[in-house]
Structure formats: structure tokens, C-alpha cells
Design a binder for these strands. Structure first.
Length: 209
DNA sequence: ACATTAAGTGATT
DNA sequence: AATCACTTAATGT
């Protein structure tokens, strides 16, 4: 399994062997929902390839982007959820084609006690995520929507490694829990400031960004 | 050419 | 900043 190569610097050899034995390789296509709100967490995903989008929905279906999970990472929420088998508060969607190792939650306790590298991996991803989440909370509380939009676009282009963003205003609005008209107006403003160019279903970020 | 969907805009709260 | 109502522009069939 070449997959284990990815983690060979993170985990000790015995743990890698256990992962090989217990984990299942899962591949999903772009747009697939890996975990929906209300479902119970049955596995822990270790990302090999691609990006997962983690969102939270409000009572009437509007989605708010929480964070992305990149490769070589795992989702912190699943750690906390799975320990006590709570239903998920979040939704995980494949942002691109994704490959991950599915680790059954049963081994969590055992591994935590047995493997120091596993424990620190878990702790590290929780800590990182917690810090990131603090950042998003700051944004919601203190930043204006236009600033949020700018950070969103930056993140997006970083995630795809491209200055072109293929999203409609509608989709962006949904992710920021705003409305299409407002996003259109803000984007228009950014275009007038020569920060980007607008097309149909596509936005091109300029250097000035 | 026509229907559908995305984007732009002014007015209202 | 959100929503409504309406227009204009782009795209698919």
C-alpha cells in the first residue's frame, strides 16, 4: 500500500501496520456527501487526496462554510463526535475527487492509549481546527461581509490552485449564508476596483487581489 | 428562435 | 444587509 507512505513520517511503524490492517480505502467523486447532519459517525476519515468541505446548516437549510480538510489531515469533528457516538452536527462534502482511509471508530480508544503518535496526531488536528474555528468566529462576529467574501475567494483559489473560480454568485451566497443580490453587488464593487473580473459562472482574480 | 438560468439594479424594510 | 420585483445578458436545446 503506497498510501501508508503518506503518513510514514507521522506515525510509528506498528501503527502504520495497524492502519493497513484495519482501515479501508474509500474513493468518492466530487460533490459526494460523505457525512450528513444527523448521521452517526462510523468511521474516521484520513484524507489521502482531495479536499473535504465541512459545512453547518441553519434551521432552514442555509449552509455556512466552516472549514476545509486537506490531504494528510483528518476531521476534528469526527474525533469528538465518535467517542460518544453522537450524531453529526456537520456535513462533509467532497470538494474534489477524494480518497481517504476509513478507520473504524472502534479502534480509537485502543490506539489513543497504545500509540503516542496517534494521540498527538489527534490532539494536533483538534487544536489546529479549534484555532481555525476561532478565526471563522472572529470573521462572523467582527468582519463585514465584503471582507468575508474576499477571504472566501482567496481560500477558494488557494484550494484549487487557480485564479479562476467556477462558482455562481448564488453558490457563493449560500456558502456565506448571504443572498445572491448582495454578493453580486459586492463582486461588482471588487470588479470596479480592478481586483477581479466577472464572467458567467466564473470569476478571475487579478494580481491586485 | 425560444426557454432557462445567471447576473444586474432600484426600491423597500 | 436582506428581500422583492423586474430587467438584461448568457447559454442550452
Amino acid at each position: 500500500m503506497e498510501i501508508a507512505e503518506k503518513f510514514k513520517n507521522v506515525f510509528e511503524p506498528e501503527l502504520l501496520n495497524e492502519i493497513k490492517a484495519k482501515a479501508k480505502l474509500v474513493q468518492v467523486k466530487e460533490g459526494d456527501i460523505i457525512l450528513d447532519i444527523g448521521q452517526t459517525v462510523k468511521i474516521i476519515p484520513l484524507l489521502i487526496k482531495g479536499i473535504l468541505k465541512i459545512t453547518r446548516a441553519d434551521d432552514y437549510g442555509k449552509e455556512l462554510l466552516l472549514y476545509y480538510v486537506h490531504s494528510n489531515e483528518s476531521c476534528a469533528m469526527t474525533f469528538t463526535c465518535c467517542m460518544q457516538q453522537y450524531p453529526s452536527e456537520i456535513k462533509a462534502t467532497a470538494e474534489s475527487d477524494v480518497e481517504f482511509l476509513a478507520i473504524p471508530i472502534g479502534v480509537m480508544d485502543e490506539w489513543l492509549a497504545k500509540y503516542p503518535t496517534w494521540k498527538s496526531f489527534v490532539m494536533r488536528t483538534i487544536r489546529n481546527r479549534f484555532n481555525e474555528l476561532l478565526g471563522t468566529i472572529d470573521q462572523l462576529a467582527f468582519q463585514k461581509l465584503d471582507e468575508r467574501l474576499v477571504t472566501y475567494l482567496k481560500e477558494k483559489s488557494k484550494a484549487t490552485g487557480s485564479a479562476l473560480i467556477n462558482l455562481s454568485h448564488e453558490e457563493i451566497a449560500r456558502e456565506l449564508a448571504s443572498s445572491r443580490e448582495v454578493i453580486s453587488r459586492l463582486l461588482k464593487k471588487l470588479e470596479n476596483d480592478n481586483k477581479l473580473l466577472l464572467y458567467r459562472n466564473q470569476i478571475k482574480l487579478l494580481q491586485a487581489f
